[in-house]
Design a protein around this nucleic acid. Structure first.
Length: 400
RNA sequence: CGGGGAGUGGCGCAGUCUGGUAGCGCACGCGGUUUGGGACCGCGGGGUCGCAGGUUCGAAUCCUGUCUCCCCGACCA
């Protein structure tokens, strides 16, 4: 992409009404625009990052046999009433609205109930199981207080996956498979070193659910960690977990984290409540086992910015960066422009993503923007490089 | 929802205490000089001070109400 054609620009001033690092840097660099508290526009560069994260997640979910779909943002009241989760007492973050004929609707904050309802039409026999489905959805949650920039919004992009099984064993096996897939996701996103599979509350069928927690000062969670044994426990279940796992609490280190993913074993509770069943090999109706697995895509983006930045700006891991190379054209000498144009084309043809800074601004501004934007590699094309016949390249974090 | 802070050109701020009809930096436009780490000089455009009401000859400034934003807490299937 040519920067001369990009409508956003970087700013020297950071917004005063944001104190979180991720929001400041993302707004300053032109990745996001704040529409209101907890709701951000993903501008062209920001969208590229979101899509890059989604690509990694998509590949790993596909690899464990899940099917992608997109469900609706509008949701039916009657479906959620079946599990008692329509009421504001049960779920206090609902955005609700109504049709012109006064029919009440909800804006999706999760899709467990709707997907179970939908599957009644597609699952009838054990031959139809197991099934795993996922989507990237904009979730709407009426949080009391939005905060931490894009890390906790009222509207955010989430990957949610749901799996359905004929037996508890089959669900357990898939649950474990998903844990491994999630590990690969965070590994590819550059977060592996600081991300822990964490025991947490909320399992309906098992004692604990699992969360993926990334060490991050801007996070909202606290976990207890044993780096050596690779054990992590959310503060909310620390007493139970210590007992259950037979470990000494004193050996655990207390750290602040951000929840970047979670997985739930629902057992047959939800499918039973909603009447989703299958015929086993004897033709008898049987309960279906369900798992639910989430990754906050935009939150992950925020966490990455929080963790990977320096005094000059963002330092994106290569897989998520909006481009791999920042091509800085210095000066406007025709032969130099020709060099840069040619290199841009050559790299693009070779499948290397490039932000081509063909703007008429001064070198210092281009270097500063390259750093602020956090592009992994910078290539300079100038009259000097035209003379020498060699381009200058530099890694984002390399010193001059 | 409780506590604290803040709303003044697109962004960052000063001015508010001690009312007299708005200023600076960035950004933007024009001209010129520049051109390897966010250049410099000159000229210029853009706000009526979150919104509503009140006090006053006169309100960004005082009073009342209200909306919004940020931080801490509570909350977070």
């Amino acid at each position: 992409m040519r920067l001369s054609q990009l409508f956003t620009k970087t700013s020297k001033n950071v917004p005063a009404d944001e104190t979180s690092k991720n929001a400041q840097l993302l707004i300053q660099a032109g990745y996001v625009y704040k529409e209101m508290a907890g709701a951000y526009v993903y501008l062209p560069l920001g969208l590229m990052v979101v899509e890059n994260i989604k690509k990694v997640v998509r590949e790993e979910m596909n690899a464990i046999g899940s099917n992608e779909l997109i469900m609706t943002g509008l949701q039916r009241k009657d479906i959620w009433e079946k599990t008692g989760r329509w009421s504001d007492e049960a779920v206090d973050i609902w955005f609700k609205t109504r049709l012109q004929d006064d029919t009440e609707l909800g804006l999706g904050w999760s899709h467990e109930e709707p997907i179970v309802e939908m599957l009644k039409q597609y699952i009838s026999s054990y031959k139809d199981l197991p099934i795993s489905l996922y989507q990237f959805q904009t979730k709407m949650r009426n949080e009391l207080r939005a905060r931490s920039g894009i890390m906790r919004g009222r509207e955010f992009v989430m990957k949610d996956m749901y799996s359905f099984h004929a037996s508890a064993e089959d669900l357990d096996a898939y649950y474990d498979k998903t844990i491994e897939a999630y590990k690969r996701v965070y590994d590819r996103l550059g977060l592996a070193d600081d991300t822990y599979v964490t025991f947490a509350s909320g399992g309906a069928f098992t004692k604990f659910s699992h969360e993926f927690q990334t060490i991050c000062d801007a996070g909202e969670d606290v976990i207890y960690l044993h780096r050596g044994k690779n054990i992590a426990i959310n503060e909310e279940v620390i007493d139970d977990a210590v007992k259950e796992l037979g470990i000494n609490r004193d050996e655990l280190e207390k750290v602040k984290t951000a929840e970047v993913g979670n997985i739930f074993n629902f057992g047959t509770q939800k499918t039973d409540e909603m009447g989703l069943r299958f015929a086993d090999d004897s033709g008898n109706p049987s309960s279906i086992y369900m798992g639910s697995y989430g990754i906050g895509i935009t939150r992950v983006m925020g966490v990455i910015v929080e963790k990977f930045s320096d005094d000059k700006g963002i330092v994106w891991p290569e897989v998520v960066a909006p481009a791999k190379v920042y091509l800085a054209l210095l000066g406007d000498a025709p032969e130099v422009v020709k060099d840069a144009d040619a290199l841009y084309e050559q790299l693009t043809r070779a499948g290397v993503t490039v932000l081509y800074d063909d703007r008429g601004c001064r070198p210092g501004e281009k270097f500063a923007d390259a750093d602020l934007l956090g592009i992994p590699y910078r290539v300079v094309v100038s009259s000097k490089t035209h003379e020498s016949g060699a381009y200058e390249t530099k890694g984002r974090t390399a010193s001059e």
